[in-house]
Each structure stands twice: as C-alpha cells, then as structure tokens.
C-alpha cells in the first residue's frame, strides 16, 4: 500500500487527537513560540482610548454571549482595564440576552483591580431587546431607553449617569461584538447619525465585514478575534488570556495548513486516472 493510500485511509480520530494536543499543551504548559506584534488596527483601537480624557464617559456595548467567550472576553477585559486605568467612566449595555453576566464579570473583576466603585465609576445597564431600535432610541434619550440598571436601580439615582442624556455626552463607543446586533448596527445607527467616535472588537470570522468601515474612518480601530485581542493586550502592557492563546492558535493554524496539503497529496492517486481519461 502506497503512502498516499495509507494517508487517504487515515482515521479522523487521529486528527482530532492531534489538534486537541496542539491546542491544550501550549495552554497548559505556557511555552512561548513567537512574540505578538501589534498591527495598525489594534494600534488604532488603543490610540482612540488614549484620546479619551480622564473623567469622560464611554459607552461599552458587550454584544456577545458565552459562545464566543474565547475571542470576545479577552478583548473586553483588556478594553475595560485600559479605560479604568485612564479613569474613564463606563456605561455598559448589552443587546445579547446572554451578555449581562459576562459584562458584570469583566466590570467587577477590573473594577476591584483599580478600586473603582459600581455606580460611581461604572454601571451596567444590562440587556434590552429591540436591536437597532434600542440604539436609535438611545440617540434621543439613554435614561428613557434604559430607565434602570441591570439590578433595577433607577438611573436617576446612579451618580455615573448624572448628566448623561444621549450620545452627545459619550466620548467614545466601544463595541465588543459577536454578530447581530453588534458593531455593524452601531456604525449604521449611531456613528453615521450622531458622529460618535467608535472602536470595535469582533470575532475573527466576522472581522472582514468591518474592514470597509475601518477604511472609511467610521471605526477608529478594530480587534479581530483572539489575534487582535493579543495585539491589544501587548499595547496595554497586560498580557493575558489572548496572548497565552496565540501559541495554541499558531500551532493549530500550521496543523490545518498541513492537513490541507496532506489531504490533497492523499487524493493524488484517485485523481491521476480521472485526469488521463
């Protein structure tokens, strides 16, 4: 039996085992292959936050749920860390029903790290159904759209919401998004109408969709998937989950490229007779 024929009969469970090991071993051992170098899109994200003056308010939209936690959570964490380190106030909203607990976790975790107080330095207004209608309505009035925070406390009694009426009081919109409703809708409903500067952190698979907005200047910066999050972690000098995951991702990408090559080599004997015919 030729080597190609043996390859063609390769049990896919060996492929599963190999990819499993290539992902798990770097995550568990923490060995390091190559340094992460920030690109221009992550630099744009970082610069936009750097431009926000201390004491200003940022709207943080956490539009994702645990399905994309591996990609969105590290960038969410790094963005909140960057904002809080600069003493920027955060108003968080979520348009995914599964989003509020993740936003809460990020805000509380980083809030404790920087000694920030809930209600004074940050607030999570929680989930609201309505997709684009919510975004549009926030342009008229944020307190009417979100009359209470996620635990039911009226926004009138939340100090960080004092003076926040609509997007005019928002210095930057930070969208951490897994799909619909998310970054694209925020650009269409808010950036194009109210001209609020915006940056986005999105899943790798959806990132190409936002390149036109980035090139048009409607997005100031873009983090695409775990790679984007890792680049941003390097910029904020807080290597974390994404930086650790990049070695696993590097090996997995090489393995998948190798699988494409081997798969085509294995198919060579089947193709040759057909070609002659």
């Amino acid at each position: 039996m030729s080597i190609f024929a043996s390859l063609a009969k390769l049990d896919r469970r060996w492929i599963f085992l190999a990819i499993g090991l290539l992902v798990v071993v770097p995550l568990l051992t923490g060995f390091h292959i190559a340094p992460v170098r920030p690109g221009s899109r992550a630099q744009g994200f970082y610069d936009a936050i750097e431009k926000v003056p201390a004491g200003a308010t940022v709207l943080l939209a956490g539009d994702y749920d645990p399905g994309t936690i591996a990609e969105n959570y590290p960038m969410h964490l790094a963005a909140v860390r960057h904002l809080m380190s600069r003493n920027v106030k955060i108003v968080a909203v979520e348009l995914y029903p599964g989003g509020p607990p993740l936003a809460d976790r990020v805000l509380h975790l980083v809030g404790e790290e920087f000694h920030k107080r809930e209600g004074y330095d940050y607030v999570n207004l929680g989930f609201k159904s309505g997709n684009e209608a919510v975004m549009s309505q926030m342009g008229s009035s944020i307190p009417i759209t979100f009359p209470a925070d996620r635990s039911g406390k009226p926004v009138g009694r939340i100090p960080v919401m004092k003076g926040i009426e609509n997007f005019s009081q928002i210095a930057l919109l930070v969208s951490i998004s897994a799909g619909y409703p998310g970054t694209k809708e925020w650009v269409q409903q808010v950036v194009s109408r109210y001209h609020v500067p915006m940056v986005a952190g999105v899943t790798a698979v959806s990132a190409p969709e936002y390149y036109p907005y980035l090139q048009a200047g409607q997005l100031q910066g873009l983090l695409g998937g775990m790679a984007g999050a890792a680049e941003y972690e390097v910029l904020v000098k807080a290597p974390g989950l994404a930086t650790r995951g990049m070695d696993a991702q590097s090996l997995a990408h090489i393995f998948i490229a190798l699988m494409i090559l081997l798969g085509n080599l294995a198919a060579l004997p089947q193709r040759a007779p057909a070609g002659r015919k």
Partner: peptide, 20 residues
C-alpha cells in the same frame, strides 16, 4: 456554549484534510 464553539477546531481540521 463554549464547548460547542470549541468543537469547530476539530471539525475544521478534519474538513481541511477530507474536503479541501
């Protein structure tokens, strides 16, 4: 939810070998 998303890595690797 995270498990469902993670399974993609296995399917992509297998599909890369068998389908591309």
């Amino acid at each position: 939810s995270s498990t469902m998303f993670s399974l993609l890595a296995f399917f992509i690797a297998s599909a890369a070998f068998r389908a591309f």
